[in-house]
Amino acid sequence: MPFEIIFFVFVLGAFIGFEVITKVPPTLHTPLMSGSNAISGVTIVGAIICMRADNPTFAQVLGFLAVVFAMVNCVGGFLVTDRMLSMFKSKAKKKKEA
């Protein structure tokens, strides 16, 4: 893929990021961080492609390692974010549970 197109998409992606996350309430600073970090685990896609069978063996071994890391990143990231968010309760919700 031509470099220009990739760069173009990168810049647009950054703009979308700045636009989408304009005002974050402090309550969500940590979950936003761990949730977005889980999204950066998308490297798993690259890692899987590195493991394709026609790649040299050593490249596949590195791919294996990358899959392990990326998987820790996304599985752990999404789950811990969900765990955190499940704790955030409004007053009304708290009363309902009690």
Binding site: I6, V11, A14, F15, G17, I21, I39, T43, V45
Partner: peptide, 24 residues
């Protein structure tokens, strides 16, 4: 790594996270 392997999903997702981290 999206630039390296020419994968736009990685590029966009990475840019999004990069931007949100920078805002924080």
């Amino acid at each position: 790594s999206g630039f390296v392997i020419g994968n736009l999903l990685l590029v966009v997702a990475g840019a999004l996270v990069g931007a949100s981290g920078l805002i924080l």
